[in-house]
Design a binder for these strands. Structure first.
Lengths: 365, 365
DNA sequence: ATTAGCACTCGAAAGATAAGAGTGCCAGCA
DNA sequence: TGCTGGCACTCTTATCTTTCGAGTGCTAAT
């Protein structure tokens, strides 16, 4: 890991950026012309040869140009590359496309994912992990003798509901009683606290012999358990096929299959951020076999209330790290901001809702 | 369109089924051996030649086997093929995997789509079109001075909610009044009936100067408009890459891109069912350019309350029509049944909810 | 240290050859 | 009249060879 000379760094950078752009091994001649330094190709050749010996580059065959190794990419990502500034159009597009926080965070995340995929031209993934949640408030709405609605307001601010049909009749009075007692017992407690015993206790206290309590408790438990299980999604999977390294359908298929299983995505934990906002996993640095010759760039976003998540893209190791890092970073920041807005002060969402004409908002599912 | 002899039908069927299985042009020799009729390959050759002249088959090159034309597939689908019976495992798998109607129809559809993709090995699409809906009942839940929840019970039985944060304080009394008046004005009417005038009227009647009414009306309108805009989704898109006809990444990319835009899927209307439960669109019968050399098989399902939708798969024209038709038909029927259950009689869902342990249901997103 | 020159290597593209599958047609046979 | 075996012909695909060219490493000269 000896320090590289400035010139070597410059050459390595040029090789990598050229390779990223062209997808083809780059040779000394091209570098002599394009890389800013004014030396002959022979000089560059000797430098290249040393960079190869150091493990930053390699040759596909004896007589081809150089290609970056994982080590090369790593150095590039850590020290060499500099994130380009986004153009005015790009920042504007991001700000515009992130969508209205009022429409709920799931939809926002969806939008952000699609945006990331579109702007980077790589498949984008979004993961959203939530800490264990609790019920802040529970309501039962009596509809008719056979029907009521359960409404849960969660600590995180999300609202969940369920329509319950009963195979028998109940009186409004019972529902109201159940509501009161359930509120007292199921709110502000964790999933584990709602055990059989507690449910039994509620049942007894309102003299429920028809299993109403079980239904309500069941929905509470289901909701809480679903909440702290991270949601993950991919958009733009087809974009992989544009990359020359995925011309082989078998390769593309394997990766796309892997990505389309949400369970795999959840595994992408953001272990050691190193204080960076962006984390890059290059080729074999990935644990999953299917990602071994791809790279993943992840940006962390955070949405107040301790909730946080990832937005990232997947592509070949020959990925445009600097450009993607810049965009993802900006998108993640925007997402954090927007989600914080939606959870906290309500003015923006409130204002917008009145200004737009919601009835006209069709399209786009 | 002259009537074909029994033998010609048998040969055509054999050609198509063999081609479906092997993806390669089928020749006379193979047919002489495999197709049940005991004639020589020369005889088959002359029959093939006539079938070719009639437009049911074609040859990729002078000296290759025969491949079905669209006309050939059409005849096969309309008259020749017979749906195989599903095996016990298959029917059981479908019944088991369709999921619990209690978890909501969106999730059920998702499950059904994934199931269809897995069982047919083609990408599956689900479209769910809903007739204009109305609000059956509206509730406002007062949480605190700055917060309330809007809960809408729709005619279709689905429940929608929204948490509203206010940048100012309101009293519980006002919310209650708004609830009553809004119920009277926004329920059982169509989207169009809720016009500016009516909103103004509600505002005046409760003396709302802060735009609360607009928020509620906005949510109602948004919900109604979202509801009758069909939801569409694809699962298992990557499966395309397994088919030999999509080895060309450009082709696969074009189709996958097309499928990943929900707007395109909604376009697949189920115009003329011919009383059939299954509709097959072969190659150029598709309107969309991107589907011109693929086939689509659609099954209609229906979920009571006039709501209906489609579940189907997309694949090459060389698709296993009979097997897929059988499976889709069964899945669609199961879906219809399950969704009808969830809307109507509640016993099954209710029973299940109590029997399972909801707290343990983690995984699977 | 840098450069020009040169022989060498090796992969990719182009061309040539061989193999094989399938056809169409014809003459002979029930 | 319908079926069959035989045979010449066609055309693709696979394989092998050849050629071409880009890029390297080395060396001698500046």
């Amino acid at each position: 890991m000896a320090k590289l000379s400035e010139r070597k760094k410059k050459i390595l950078t040029a090789v990598i950026e050229e390779y990223i752009a062209s997808a083809e091994p780059v040779g000394s001649k091209l570098l002599a012309e394009k890389a800013g330094l004014h030396v002959s190709s022979a000089t560059i050749r000797s430098e290249l040869s040393e960079l190869t010996a150091l493990g930053y580059l390699e040759q596909p065959h004896t007589s081809a140009g150089r290609v970056p190794t994982v080590l090369g990419y790593r150095l590039y990502v850590n020290e060499l590359m500099q994130r380009p500034d986004l153009s005015r159009e790009e920042t504007e597009r991001i700000n515009r496309s992130l969508g209205d926080p009022a429409q709920g965070q799931e939809r926002m995340l969806d939008h952000a994912g699609r945006l990331a995929a579109d702007m980077t031209d790589y498949p984008a993934l979004t993961v959203c992990s939530q800490p264990p949640d609790t019920v802040r408030r529970l309501d039962l709405i009596y509809v008719d003798a056979n029907t009521f609605i359960i409404v849960l307001l969660l600590g995180s601010g999300s609202v969940q509901n369920k329509l319950v049909h009963l195979p028998f009749s109940v009186g409004e009075e019972l529902i109201r009683k159940l509501c009161t007692v359930a509120n007292a017992n199921f709110c502000a407690v964790t999933e584990d606290d709602i055990d059989a015993e507690r449910i039994r206790a509620v049942e007894r206290s309102i003299d429920d012999r028809m299993g109403l309590t079980a239904v309500v408790a069941g929905f509470v438990l289901e909701t809480l358990s679903r909440c702290h299980c991270a949601r993950a999604a991919v958009s733009g999977g087809a974009k992989l096929l544009r990359q020359p390294e995925f011309q082989d359908p078998a390769k593309a298929h394997s990766l796309m299959d892997y990505l389309s299983d949400a369970a795999n995505l959840r595994g992408l934990s953001f272990t050691d951020g190193n204080g960076q906002d962006i984390r890059v996993l290059i080729g074999p640095e990935n644990i999953a076999e299917e990602l071994r010759d791809s790279s993943v760039i992840l940006a962390k976003y955070d949405a107040g209330d301790g909730m946080q998540g990832l937005i990232g893209v997947v592509g070949p190791t020959r990925m445009d790290y600097s450009r993607v890092a810049a965009k993802l970073s900006y998108i993640a920041a925007g997402l954090s901001r927007a989600l914080a807005d939606s959870a906290g002060a309500a003015l923006p969402g409130f204002g917008k809702l009145m200004l737009t004409e919601p009835g006209k908002r069709k399209g786009q599912g």
